[in-house]
Write a protein that binds this DNA or RNA. Structure first.
Lengths: 255, 255
DNA sequence: GTCGGCTCACCACTCTGTGGAAAGATGGTG
DNA sequence: CACCATCTTTCCACAGAGTGGTGAGCCGAC
């Protein structure tokens, strides 16, 4: 019988699951949230939410002030441990450095997570974009370097991904449908790298390639970014080749 | 008797507490850990640990491979949300930037957490230390800029802190006892800034001041770091004054 | 002052989380 | 290749941890 409330994946450890739900609500709310608001968004009774938040606060994963609840310092250690312990990241850092040095562009590494991607490392090129550290930033798959990740998923996944893509407007005003994106992904697969011009930020451009993994999945990708003037069309093949070399080097040093 | 390892702070939500214990074990183990090892360190039965890790893995807070368990990508969002949502950090970033620009030194912001401190932001000065991003790194209070935080705790806390400090050897080989540290902290309180020369890293030096908070606590501090040559003794008072101005500016923009 | 919304403490019921024990993997050794 | 030590996973019946409805305090708004 198709259970009505699908939101119940039937797992052991309800309380833990709920605590994580609460944390996720906090992670995505960019303001401090009041108790009742958190409860509403997490779909939990207020009393329960309050108890969970109490524990999280005592453990430093959540902070509370007059305005409401916000993520806590304790969360930082986890991220630090993840970044420090990730072998691909360790392998990638010097290579990104070289890449940024050689191209003068900003080089970054990101990783797929569901149907989005997370920036894991970033090395500024010659003209450092005065941009705060975006490590941990969650970006969509359907624009910019995300297209590389979308292109190299396995067939089923790509299909599922495309199925849920709505027609969307890119930063330069172009409207892209799911079918058009599908065509673009095919092109990416053919040449082995993705390019973007004004996809996500007007005036910016990027080239990205997947980091090959032993099981032929592409969960991670590297990218160079710069202004459209920095990345003229005729430079793209060369950048693609350079990126491929770098990605291969990362892959070899990781696995 | 100062409960040495009561380990039972008598809280509601045992399972959540335990899950956090498990996460903390993972955060501090710098290698992948096997199930049994995690269970041992967290003081939990293996089966229980297994169950917890299962949930955490399903939720992306933990990753598992043949070698063992390690922190997972999911942890990054929390940290990102914390860093993005922290008002002091937002206020501090441009000021650190100016500070690094004006002094040519590396400027950083950190915050106290228990008897350690965490690096929250860092802006490289003229000669960028070729060091990976240490954001989230946990450092002791008894050396380097930590002394500023230790000096400006309230009296009780300072006493408690000093009581648990063991005589320790600094990076330059000098042995410091609790009493000597106490004297040093008094000096820090008198002049309003702390200085370090070869405390934590041989050949390095730093100056730090607390960021004043409305309730007169100093939970956060800012610091400039460079080689000992970059920070000659006669330059210190000037740096101290500059830091105080910056700290005040951060404080004003935050609260 | 009055009102509505938010937060927190309480407590009896019940379903969740527990952990011992045994089966299944894994890998090192002679 | 057979053996053994060690680590991982699965199972299940019981106990108590977690739940959430309820109502008392606390604001701040009007």
């Amino acid at each position: 019988m198709p259970d009505v409330e699908a939101a119940k994946p039937a797992t052991s450890m309800r309380s833990l699951e709920r605590a994580i739900d609460v944390l996720e609500v906090l992670d995505s709310g960019h303001h401090p949230l009041r108790l009742s608001e958190i409860a509403r968004r997490a779909g939990l009774p207020v009393a329960t939410t309050q108890r969970i938040l109490g524990v999280l606060e005592a453990r430093g994963r959540v902070e509370k002030d007059a305005v409401g609840y916000r993520p806590g310092v304790g969360l930082i250690f986890g991220a630090h441990a993840y970044l420090a312990g990730n072998p691909m990241l360790t392998a990638a850092r010097p290579i990104l450095q070289d890449l940024a040095g050689a191209t003068g562009l900003t080089a970054s590494l990101f990783r797929r997570l569901g149907w989005s991607r997370v920036v894991l490392a970033r090395v500024e090129g010659g003209t450092p974009l005065r941009y705060e550290l975006p490590i941990g930033e969650r970006l969509p798959l359907h624009v910019g370097g995300g297209k590389t990740l979308a292109a190299f998923m396995d067939e089923e996944e790509t299909a599922a991904f495309l199925a849920q893509v709505e027609p969307h407007t890119r930063a330069d005003g172009v409207v892209v449908t799911s079918a058009e994106l599908a065509a673009e992904l095919a092109e990416v697969r053919a040449v082995g790298y993705s390019t973007a011009r004004g996809d996500r930020e007007p005036g910016m451009a990027s080239v990205a390639v997947p980091v090959p993994e032993p099981d032929n999945l592409a969960m991670a990708a590297i990218q160079v970014t710069g202004s459209q003037a920095d990345i003229p069309l005729e430079r793209i093949p060369e950048l693609g080749a350079e990126l491929k070399r770098a990605a291969l080097a990362i892959s070899r040093r990781t696995f």
